[in-house]
Simulated scan of single mutants.
Amino acid sequence: MEAPNTSLAPEALRFALYNRFLKGEAKVPQMPESLLRVRRLLNDPHASLERLARTINSDPPLTAWLMQYAESPLLLGFRPCTSLRDILSRLGTRRLHNLVLCFGMRNLFIGKEPALQRVFRARWKAALERAAYAAALAEASGLAEVDDALLAGLLQDVGSLPLLAELERWPQKPRGEAALHELCEHLSGDVGVVVMTVWKLPTVMIECARHRRNWPREHIGKADLADLVQVASHLAAPVDEQPLATLPAFQRLRETCPGLPRDPSQLVETLVDGLARWRLLLGSRMSVSPGAAPGNGSAPFLPRA
């Protein structure tokens, strides 16, 4: 395959990179192997719950994370879960699929360059914070299922992962972290749409990536998941040029969920307890070590913000 032209201006570089993804010349990451195994079983009408439990048990960190999720207030019922089989039965097919993909996301980037690793870790840390806000906001508003919001928050910037991996083939381009982040900000949404389309994820998830920085976005009807994730993203990392109170997504969310505080600062106060819980869940087993290359199958700890 012909090597990419590395002597390009920033705008031309962005166009060239995106074209490589559209043409299939740049590598789109495969779904996490743990999810592929679970997907095959979930699609097999003859697969038993016991077989599914054995498959998940073969991945101890994933098993521990699912058990921790099952202890959240969302799943606490009158009868406690005493086994992984009980947990899987309570989670259900769609929720299990979402949670396994959430957990597997942390190992999708396999770059070796320190500069690219640093940017990946920063963006993954931001994704965890955005997902925590999205889950807490879904829990408080009832607008979406919490696991859908959790996954959408993590996937909103998924396009950055293959972008950073592809840049290893462009060694002459600057490796300044600010420039790399700017490149991701420009292209992550478009590349994320490509990635999630290849993965055959629901359109509602794809739209969250497509509109990740489309702050003026307008649409007819009630607030949707993309609106919720936009608000969560703004709460996690406020955008100076677009105050939350004037964000169309926030205005639709308030109209759709009148029980939510109308004042942004009061909304943050409402989310405090839920946010702490989701930060704990996401930070405990889904972070990437500052000293280890992502993608090595481990799940070391990165201190939470």
Rank of each mutant, 00 (worst) to 15 (best):
L155V: 12
A132W: 02
M196F: 05
A135H: 04
E129T: 04
R169A: 15
V195I: 07
V195W: 04
V198T: 08
S160Y: 10
V198G: 00
A179S: 14
G159M: 04
A135Q: 06
M196A: 07
P171E: 13
P171R: 13
E168Y: 03
V158F: 15
L154K: 15
T203E: 10
W124K: 11
T203R: 10
Y133T: 04
Y133K: 02
E139K: 15
L167W: 14
Q172W: 06
G142R: 07
P171Q: 09
S160P: 05
G176K: 06
L163S: 07
L151G: 08
G176T: 11
K173V: 13
L154C: 15
L201F: 08
W199I: 01
E185V: 05
A144W: 11
R175F: 07
M205W: 04
V204K: 10
G153A: 03
H186G: 09
L128V: 15
R123C: 10
L151Y: 09
K173S: 10
P174S: 08
E129F: 01
M205T: 00
M196N: 07
K200L: 00
M196V: 09
A152N: 07
A126S: 11
V158P: 00
A144R: 13
Q156R: 15
L164D: 04
A138H: 03
E129A: 04
L143H: 12
K125Y: 11
L161E: 09
G189K: 05
T197G: 12
T203I: 04
S188V: 05
V195L: 07
E129C: 00
G192D: 04
H186V: 10
S141G: 12
I206R: 08
V191L: 02
A140Y: 01
W199G: 02
A131I: 05
W124L: 03
A165W: 12
L137V: 09
V193Q: 01
A131T: 08
A135P: 04
P162R: 01
R123P: 00
E145L: 08
R175A: 02
A178D: 02
L183R: 05
S141C: 07
A127H: 09
K173P: 00
L154R: 15
L151V: 06
E182W: 11
A127D: 07
R175V: 01
A165N: 12
K173G: 05
P162C: 02
L154P: 09
E168H: 15
E139C: 10
A178W: 02
P162Y: 04
P171C: 14
A126I: 00
V204P: 01
A131Y: 05
V158D: 10
E177R: 13
K125P: 02
T203L: 07
T197K: 12
R130F: 01
A127F: 09
V146R: 14
G192K: 03
E177A: 13
A152D: 06
L183Y: 03
K200T: 01
E168L: 04
A152K: 07
R175Y: 02
E129K: 06
L161F: 11
K200I: 00
L180K: 12
D148A: 08
W170R: 05
Y133W: 15
L164I: 06
A127N: 00
A165Q: 15
L183K: 03
W124A: 03
T203V: 07
L167C: 10
E182H: 14
V204Y: 11
